[in-house]
Each structure stands twice: as structure tokens, then as C-alpha cells.
Design a protein around this nucleic acid. Structure first.
Lengths: 348, 348
DNA sequence: TAGGCGCTACCGATTTCTTGACAGGGAATT
DNA sequence: AATTCCCTGTCAAGAAATCGGTAGCGCCTA
């Protein structure tokens, strides 16, 4: 059995026979490395082990600049290495298919490579890098410059713009600024971001959701706020209730919510909250519940704009014919949640 | 006979066919307007009619600020000109509503202008320019992916669906299609549309002509083509010669024409081109010139189907008794053109 | 002959635009 | 001063386009 202790020892030895077997992530720096990385070794208490770089990425770590753990095997083509390097160096940059084309790459080819070697598309890969980097940024707070320097960044600009673009860009000038707190938590269906205001929880969503950046943008706009890392008076209750939910011991939530939106959206979300644990309704039924039977499309759309997963249970709405149709966190999570609520799933 | 009562009714209807025919002055306010002015309409007892703005001015009235009756034709605002220039120069550029906003424009205002003057929204206009550009690139042997990205699309799929929307065919399958280019220009007698094929100019007509839609439909049918806004190799010569014409410095045109029609129509149009600048003939005379003296009605009909105004001078044909009878661009324009060619009109 | 490549078709819980309704304001008119 | 008219800017809801993603089809070639 490969225990954490054994892996830690391999790490200290820089044992190359563990290359490809595990990845080590360092909680204090938000960086993950190969077992053989030449950088200074972390304390045992600060490490987490993952099997693959993908997992580390999903949990919010960024790849080490020294050992480049995303360059899996030696057979990573040079042009891919270059791309990865580039994204790591300036995570706020978005490389679109067009940009790939400009450099003479066939976007399809790149996508196929990432899919094969990292099990995600190139675009998803970039999205996670962007948010992870910005988030790690915030956690380091005033130590920003030090961190940036240590990690070999030539300048702060990449870091700063990455951080600003996603969390801190002022929506309007000189208006009263509010603060939204943000934190990352772990759940059995993967890591999630939680956000809270004075009044309550304003976001709870999966870290790999495609809409994530849009959601942050909307929140900033609605609240005329900046998003900052750190605690919020509602987080402990939320986490407690979520744990209970995932233990199968909680069916409804009491933590206060603060979910701004158009009147129509709000009424859709209110309707969603009336669907009981373990039950499902169709989009059509939902619109009928709202007294607007013809607004099926609009309702589905508003469901999709729900920023508070699980608590506002948009996963309980499925197609008329019983198919799952869609879910922001991915269909597999929708399936998992429904199975779980029906008691068909036992957690380890 | 054009009585005051008739003019007053035209005024209430804002009848644009009287544009250029009379000017209305309001005794109680001392202001004079075009027949189509959008301001609140005066009482019948308070109006005086004049033929020209000059007369009204001489009688001590001032021009209305809304309809600006001193400007012969409504002019394209400079900021619109700039926008059109920008996208013509670089069709691959996409100006989003948000970009307009950043430049201090109200996207809705822009949209409304294009809707009114080009009969399509600004976005649609841009899209058609881009697709036009893409079509040309592909005709010259470019690859689809390159064309897509160079034409301002960030994704192949987006390009494909957009392209298919317009041509009904996927990019590589549309080699056999034709494109007619279209542009809006301004002249002293109002805005006109010009269209061109590879071979020459196939249309030149006033934007407010009633038959316009029919003309476009015919062109599409004749050439088995799609009409797209964009430049054409014959446009610059056409515009140069038109400017010279309106400066009074040009009496015949050399720009190549491409005017499909029935044999009879073609021979009618050929005959028209033989009528010299500044002269008029009657319909009867025209049919005699063709050697078909009894076909007066058919000839008049074919005149009406002329799609290339001014260059094919159907305005030079009038009734036997000297009355103007009819003209697609409106009688006032026919009058204006004849007066102008006779040197009875000084511009400005 | 498998695998790379360029392309198209298809999907949709994304993004952007379009539309229609409405309020505010300027100009002409009573 | 009040009224009429319509141009503007704004906004939400709904429509349409674009994008990101997947599958798979021919074609080429190692």
C-alpha cells in the first residue's frame, strides 16, 4: 500500500521510480510538483498527494515551474510544452482557437492532444489554470510580490492581471465598493467555490464549471463588489450543512442565501427550492408550477443561471421523458446527486 | 393641379413622394419644414407652401432643426461613416455592441440607423461583410479553417453555421455559388444602392424606390447569387464617374454594366443609352427608334424595369405632351435630373 | 492499414443581439 | 405653459448567433 509517508520519503529521495505514480501538491504555496522536483522540499504537514496532475489542477494548484509536472512524459511535443509554459507564465491570457491557428496549429490537433494526455480539452485546461492562479494569488495576499518572485515570474503583471480580471476588477468607478468573500471547499463530487456577502451565501459551484468566470463577473456587477479570499460569517454554517447533506443526514438547508437576479430568475429559483429532496420534476412541470406553462425555455435558461448549486436544487429538474438534459457541473454530477438523494449511492 | 389642400394632406401623411416638391412654412412660428418632418403638424390655417427652401427663407422663415430642410438629402453621420470605413478596411474585425459602448456610442442608436438605412442591423451588416470576405478568400483557394479565423470567427463551428445560414451550403461545397456585392452611396438626390458582379455594375437605384425588393429578387434569380454588402472592383470607377456627373463634368459613362433581362428589355435599354445628355424623347419616339412604333406600352414597361438609373437614362423619356408621367425614383427626382442636365440647376 | 488531418454535422445549462416597451427630453406648435 | 411628436437611452425577455465540444467521414501517407 502506498501511504502518504512512503510517498513523502520518495519525495525526499527524489526517487525517479515514482515519476508518473504520484504528484505532490503543497498547501502553503498552491503549487504541485513531480516526485523528482529539484526545488526545496515541503514539510510533511503541508503536502497532499494526487495521482495525476489533473486532480491537482482541479483542486486549485498550479504546476511548478521547475519540474513542469504537466509535461507528462518525455514525448510531450515541444509546441505543447511551449503552450503550457506560456499559460503558466501568464494565466490571465486566453489562447483562443484563433490564436492557435495564427501560430500555425490546428486547434483540433491541440484539443486532441490535451484530451488524450490530460483528459480535458485545451480550453478547459486554460480555464482552470486561470482561476486557480488567481485564487492562489489572493490567498498569498500581501506576500504577492514575494511569491511571484520566488516562482520565477519575470514581472508581476501576469499575476496581477490574472487576479484582477477574474476577481477584482471594479465594475464601476468610485461607487460604494462591497466585498464578497470566497473560499474553496471539498465535496465528494469534487471541489467547489463558495462565496458569501453580509446577508448570506451568494455562490456555491463546482470549480470546473464552464460558466464560472461569468458567474464571478455577474456577482461583481450585482453587488458592485470585489471578490476577496477569506472567511465569511455564513461559511461555517454552510460547510456544516453541506457535510451533513453529503452524509445523507440533511435534506433541507437553513443557511441564508443572497441570490440577486431579475424578478423572473428569482421566482424560478424560489420554485426550484420547493422541489423536495429525492424528487424530480420536468422543466414543463416547473413552468406550470410557476403559472407560466409556456415559458419552458426561459425557465430552463434561468435554471442554468443558478449560482447556488445543491441548495437551490436545479439538479432535480429533468426532461419530460426522464433524460437528464443538462447541468452546469456536468451531467455525471447531476446523475450522482439524484442517485445519492434517492439512496442508491453509498459514500465510502 | 397641386392645391394647398392636397399638399396639406400630404403633409399630414408625411408622404415622402412629395419630398423635394414643396416646403411648408408655419406662420405662427416662423419655421419651415420638409413635407416629412416628424414634428407636430400645424393647423391648415397657419401654413404657407413654397416650392423651395430658398423662397421660404426669403419670406423670413427659419429652417426647422428636426428636418433640416436646407440639407438636400439627409446625410450619413460622420461616426457612422467611420464605422463603415473601419469594417470595410478590415472585414475580419468584429465590432461588438460592447465595443461600440466603449467608444461612447449607444449600440441601439447605431442599430436603429442601420436598420433604417440599410434595412438590417449593424451586426448583420458586419456579418455579411465578413462572409463576403470569406467567400472571396475561399474562391481564391484558401483553406476553410484559415478563412474562418481570418474572417473574424473564433471558432470553426461558428463560422460554418454562419456561412451555411447565408449560402445554404457548407463552405467547401459552395464553390459554384455567386455573390453580388452591394454598397450604399449618397448623391445630391438622395442615397442609392449600387450592386456589382465580376463583369460590371448590375444595379444603381434609389434606396427609397418602391420596386427595390423586386429588383433584388430578380438579380438573385438571374445570377443565382447571394447579395452581400461589400466592395466590388467596379465600384470605385462607378463612384468616380457619378461624382463627375453630379459635378456637371460628365455626360456619358464608361463603367461596365451587367444588366441581364429579356432580349426585348435589353434592346429597350440599349435604345435608352442612345438618348443624349440633356435631351428628352417621348415614349412614342423611343419605340419608333427601336423600329416598333406600336409597342409604346411594352417599351414604357421595360423602361420601368431598368435597374441602372442615371447611367441607363430612363429619366430622359417623357410623355408626348411634355409631362413627366412616371419615374421609379419619384417624379421630383426625374424633374431634378432633367433640370440639372439642362443646366437649370446649380448645386448648393 | 492505422493514424493524422481537415472538414462538416450536430448539440446546447453560453454569449450576444434584437425587440418592444417605456420614461425623459428637445423641438415645434397651440 | 401645455401639448404633441418622436428621438434617445434603458431594460428585460426572448431570439439568434457564436462558441466550445464531440463524433465521424473521407483523404492522405508512413
Amino acid at each position: 500500500m502506498l501511504t502518504d509517508r512512503k510517498m513523502y520519503n520518495a519525495l525526499l529521495r527524489k526517487d525517479s521510480s515514482f515519476e508518473g505514480i504520484f504528484i505532490v501538491a503543497v498547501k502553503t504555496t498552491g503549487i504541485f510538483c513531480r516526485p523528482t522536483c529539484s526545488a526545496r522540499k515541503p514539510k510533511f504537514g503541508n503536502v497532499v498527494f494526487y495521482k495525476t496532475p489533473k486532480e491537482a489542477l482541479q483542486h486549485g494548484f498550479r504546476p511548478c515551474k521547475l519540474c513542469a509536472p504537466l509535461d507528462l512524459a518525455a514525448r510531450t511535443p515541444d509546441y505543447i510544452k511551449k503552450l503550457i509554459k506560456e499559460i503558466s507564465a501568464n494565466p490571465s491570457k486566453k489562447i483562443k482557437d484563433y490564436d492557435l491557428f495564427l501560430r500555425g496549429f490546428e486547434p483540433n490537433k491541440i484539443r486532441r492532444w490535451f484530451k488524450k494526455n490530460h483528459n480535458m480539452t485545451f480550453q478547459t485546461f486554460q480555464r482552470m489554470m486561470r482561476i486557480n492562479n488567481a485564487f492562489n494569488m489572493m490567498q498569498s495576499g500581501e506576500k504577492v510580490s514575494g511569491t511571484a518572485y520566488d516562482s520565477g515570474y519575470g514581472s508581476l503583471s501576469g499575476f496581477n492581471s490574472s487576479y484582477k480580471n477574474i476577481f477584482n476588477e471594479a465594475p464601476t468607478k468610485s461607487k460604494a465598493m462591497n466585498v464578497i468573500n470566497m473560499k474553496r471547499i471539498e465535496t465528494p463530487v469534487g471541489p467547489m467555490y463558495i462565496c458569501g456577502t453580509e446577508k448570506g451565501i451568494c455562490m456555491l459551484d463546482f470549480t470546473d464549471r464552464r460558466m464560472l468566470e461569468t458567474e464571478f463577473k455577474e456577482l461583481k456587477k450585482y453587488f458592485k463588489a470585489v471578490i476577496l479570499p477569506g472567511d465569511n460569517k455564513h461559511f461555517s454554517l454552510l460547510e456544516k450543512e453541506l457535510n451533513e447533506y453529503f452524509d445523507g443526514k440533511r435534506k433541507t438547508f437553513t443557511v441564508p442565501l443572497d441570490a440577486p437576479g431579475t424578478d423572473f430568475q428569482k421566482s424560478v429559483w424560489e420554485t426550484l427550492k420547493k422541489i423536495p429532496y429525492g424528487k424530480t420534476v420536468s422543466y414543463k412541470k416547473e413552468s406550470e408550477m410557476m403559472g407560466k406553462p409556456s415559458a419552458v425555455r426561459a425557465v430552463a435558461n434561468a435554471n442554468g443561471h443558478n449560482r447556488i448549486s445543491i441548495i437551490i436544487p436545479c439538479h432535480r429538474v429533468i426532461g419530460e421523458d426522464g433524460t437528464l438534459t443538462g447541468y452546469g457541473g456536468g451531467l455525471w454530477r447531476k446523475q450522482w446527486l439524484l442517485d445519492f438523494e434517492k439512496g442508491n449511492l453509498k459514500l465510502l
